[in-house]
């Protein structure tokens, strides 16, 4: 029981850190297309950590099944909405900032 609580707590902590990092990236990254990647962290691993933590506390019950459904739903819909978002942005003419390595090999 105690072990489960500790693992669950650690997973909650990991999820929180991942979520905050993703949000920080969302604020800090230079252009829209880079921000999509930051947001995608919070949709994948962060959500998985939270759901896994809650499933450990729910043990085997209908609640655990529902939690799994939440995760599957998020993992199925997030690529679809992400793809639709990027495609719409691309169609409307928003150009991605791409970076080619400079000759001196370092970014000043």
């Amino acid at each position: 029981m105690l072990v489960i609580d500790i693992v669950s707590g650690l997973l909650l902590l990991a999820g929180s850190i991942l979520g905050l990092s993703g949000a920080w990236g969302l604020l800090k990254f230079p252009d829209f297309y880079a921000r999509v990647h930051a947001a995608s962290i919070t949709d994948t691993l962060c959500a998985a950590c939270f759901v896994a933590a809650l499933m450990l506390q729910a043990s085997f019950s209908l609640v655990a099944v529902k939690l799994l459904m939440v995760l599957l739903l998020l993992w199925l819909t997030s690529p679809t909405s992400g793809h639709a978002l990027v495609k719409a942005a691309h169609r409307s003419g928003l150009r991605a900032v791409t970076w080619t390595p400079p000759a001196d090999g370092g970014r000043s």
Binding site: Y33, A34, V36, H37, A38, S40, I41, T44, L45, W75, S78, P79, T80, G82, H83, V86, K87, H90, A96
Partner: peptide, 26 residues
Amino acid sequence: FANSITLTPGTVSFDVAEGEVTVHAV
């Protein structure tokens, strides 16, 4: 394939057409 690309952070697929995929990556 396109959905797997988008699900993995760091890469996102723009467009799939004629057996080719356009990808943006960090």
